Simulated scan of single mutants.
Amino acid sequence: MIEAVKFWNEPNNKSHWDLELDPGWERFAEMVKLACVATYAENSALTRVLGGISPVDPSFLQRLQGLGVLDGVNAVAVHGFPLDWNHWQIDEWPARIAEIQAVTPLPVWVTEVGVSTFGAEEVQEWGLKRTAELLIGRVPSIHWYSLYDLPKAWPATTRHREAEGSSYYRHFHMGLLREDGSPKLAARIFANYTPAMGICQWFHFEDHRLDDAVRWLKRLGVRKLRTGLSWADSFRPGADAWFDRQMQALEDFDVTLTFCFTPEHRGLQPHHTSAPQVPEEYAEFCARMVRRYVGGGSASSGPGLPRADLLTASA
């Protein structure tokens, strides 16, 4: 059921990685290289994906290549929201993909792409159709963000909060379904693009939407699902029981599993975007999750062995 594991989320976005603590991404590189080696040791056939970058920045990938990170992954990922946040237009998607393909031979996945209904549901419906036209057949994996609107009582994962103005509130309107589970216009046509198009849906700790989400995903014909297991949540009481319940509920899908969020007490700063005090602890978490939910596997027909010098930064 686990199609791939993904290391972090939007590492070049300060809403997800503290760039003041790690302005050159050396700490991030060390952490991901350790995680690549640790997960390979658990299952050498499992596809390893670099956390989706946002903005789409080829120079950032060149920086990580120089630090040896791309030698340990089998694909890179990008995120794009040209109708809401990006400074480029939706028809530029092929050019954005080509920019990344020009700096790495690795497959390019689009693990978050979406359109909010902040202005109008018709905008999302049109954006879904146009996105499908531009991306299906161009990249090997696409995950639409997202199934549900973010509940208004929950904060969006961003460092800017309400200071962003309307940009912040768009975070709450990205779903095909409203907060109450009722479908929007785009939900009625999403099945036209499955299974080629998957969905990215983050589930919070003990998320009350999990069972309804599974029913909707199957109704929409979704096969590929991207979600996450939070390193920070792993320290909560009952974490393993919740992780087990989540993964059991999603067993019918091809899951890309994202490992993200630093526990406050294990970061250089007490925040989920912080580089960890001990990067090996993140790698150990990734390995434990692979051991628990994927098990062992042979590399005979799977991804190659990470280069031995991946661990140089940690030596």
Rank of each mutant, 00 (worst) to 15 (best):
I2W: 06
E3F: 15
A4H: 12
F7T: 08
F7G: 01
E10T: 05
E20Q: 13
E20F: 09
D22L: 10
F28P: 04
C36D: 14
V37F: 09
V37C: 06
T39C: 10
S44Q: 15
L46S: 09
R48Q: 13
L50Y: 15
G51W: 09
S54T: 10
V56I: 14
D57R: 07
S59D: 14
S59W: 03
F60A: 08
Q62Y: 05
Q65K: 14
G68H: 04
G68E: 03
V69A: 11
D71P: 02
D71I: 03
N74W: 15
A75G: 01
A77R: 09
H79A: 10
W88V: 01
P94H: 02
A95K: 11
A98V: 01
A102H: 03
A102D: 13
W109I: 04
T111D: 12
G114I: 02
G114H: 07
S116G: 00
T117C: 05
F118T: 00
G119P: 00
E121L: 03
E121Q: 03
E122C: 04
E122R: 05
E122Y: 02
Q124V: 01
Q124D: 05
W126H: 05
G127D: 04
L128P: 08
E133C: 00
G137Y: 13
G137D: 10
R138W: 01
R138M: 09
V139F: 06
V139P: 03
I142D: 00
H143K: 06
W144D: 00
Y145S: 02
W154Y: 11
R161D: 14
R161S: 03
A163C: 00
D180K: 02
G181K: 12
G181Q: 11
P183R: 04
A187E: 05
F190A: 01
F190W: 07
A191D: 08
A196E: 14
H204V: 01
F205Y: 15
F205T: 06
R209W: 11
R209H: 12
D212L: 15
K218I: 05
L229E: 00
A232V: 04
S234R: 09
F235S: 12
A239T: 09
W242A: 15
R245Q: 12
R245V: 07
D252R: 08
T256N: 12
T256A: 13
E264G: 05
H265I: 01
S274T: 07
Q277K: 11
Q277S: 03
Q277M: 08
Q277G: 05
P279F: 00
E280P: 02
E280M: 08
A283S: 04
E284Y: 08
A287M: 12
R288L: 11
M289W: 14
R292F: 12
Y293L: 08
V294Y: 11
G295Y: 02
S300G: 04
G304R: 15
R307H: 10
R307V: 06
R307D: 08
T312V: 14
S314N: 14
A315T: 14
